[in-house]
Design a protein around this nucleic acid. Structure first.
Lengths: 236, 236
DNA sequence: AAAACCAATCTGGTTAACCAATTTTAAACA
DNA sequence: TGTTTAAAATTGGTTAACCAGATTGGTTTT
């Protein structure tokens, strides 16, 4: 018997991955696998679920990303050290996760940046300060020339995230940034119309962080996000 | 000539991935690749960088995750629609990313949960409310029995994240949760000593969200996190 | 001259074979 | 019978071959 071969779309691929994750969850429950227990081998799962080993590996890697499984070379894949109930709950949540919409990204960005500005004011090193100054100058230079400075604007904000000294928030900022940029044409934070006021706002934030004034830093950041803020909380 | 084969540790693997990402960045700069331009094929890069095609694929997938590249089947890998400057800045940030420490995780969790509680109060559907009630009851039942209820506690918080209607924050909560659990033995949020007060606190949060009182929901969540909060902001 | 066509080539994705470390099994020895 | 040892089977990771769709360049047709 010959297997029918075809190229799968990303959606189809994601669907079979979801089904595999569901089956892994069911297996963990049916076999009463506890933290530390070993999952069946990738080959076994591949046969049992009637999918390729590559699909199994991808599903396992996804669950590894969320900290639910751990693969050890030449040994096996193991259930992470969280209980069965949390395991079930988290897998269900992961399966239900929707792609982020733009509004959700913006809302999260504002939340993160109000905090990173505050934290940066408290923790910034002199090195952080130099990096922020550099990004600020690059931004101002471009704006004065009348050129588009969206990228430089962005890098200034990322420099603040770095200066916050919180690696998790820094990572999250990096994750959401591309999605923000992609939709930026619709909702500019620093539109060319407002670019010159943007320079002053950036300077205000920078000065507050330089002077280690967390309250003012947050306030200046909030002012900087005024337009986005309105988009988020006044519109629908 | 025979190639020496050996199993690489995850650290070694991460190092060569970093080097590949650096080389991709340098290539984009040297060739002046702009948004939409096509990267050399995986095979070409594999030869040029003298690494396996699998390593190249992994590096590309990582940059895809951060939205910097896009692979299209049977066509090629393309530079995303963000400028060269942002591309350089973001790649540098990605290369410098540190593994999150526990304190960074907790700090981010508190930030996220104060917000999701508020948003849940504003947006929760009746369905969300039922899910939260279910998680709350499961938690209370276990505590009354005197059993460990860390998992149920956690699922209640995740139910709130879901009710917030913000898919990005929901995802981020899922990402940080396993790390939180793993280190939970050190710093319990709902320690068995405080489990009974934990029930009341959970009920307070639930009631505030049920009554659509965002301010109170945030306040109750803050009270619930009092101990963690102190750990974060009073201790070094 | 331009449009339509076709075959050779190139692409990312997928699969099957292979690797070395580990684990298990059973055989050999005490 | 209990311990040691070695060989066979199993493991996740890696590699090379293969797949079908997309691209490309040249040729033919209109």
């Amino acid at each position: 018997m010959t297997m029918k071969l075809e190229i799968l779309t990303k959606n189809e691929n994601r669907d079979i991955q979801k089904k595999i994750i569901e089956k892994i969850r069911d297996l963990i429950n049916y076999k009463n696998l506890e933290p530390g227990d070993k999952l069946p081998s990738e080959r076994t799962l591949s046969e049992k679920f009637e999918v390729s080993r590559g699909n199994i590996r991808e599903a396992i890697q996804k669950l590894e990303f969320y900290g639910l499984l751990e693969s050890i070379p030449q040994s096996g894949t193991f259930v992470a050290n969280i209980g069965v109930i949390a395991m079930n709950g988290m897998i269900d949540d992961i399966l239900r996760l929707e792609d982020p919409d733009f509004k959700s990204l913006v809302e999260t960005r504002i939340l993160l940046e109000l905090k990173t500005a505050r934290l940066a004011a408290l923790r910034r090193t002199n090195e952080d300060l130099e990096a922020m100054k550099e990004a600020l100058d690059a931004y101002a230079t471009k704006v004065v020339k009348g050129e588009d400075a969206v990228q430089e604007d962005l890098l200034f904000h990322l420099a603040i995230a770095k200066a916050s000294g919180n690696s998790t928030m820094n990572t999250f900022m990096l994750i959401i940034t591309p999605g923000i940029i992609t939709n930026f044409e619709k909702y500019h934070v620093c539109d060319s119309n407002q670019a010159f006021s943007g320079i002053q706002e950036h300077k205000d934030i920078y000065e507050a962080i330089k002077n280690q004034d967390p309250k003012l830093a947050k306030q200046m950041m909030k002012a900087h996000f005024k337009i986005l803020y309105q988009y988020c909380y006044n519109q629908k």
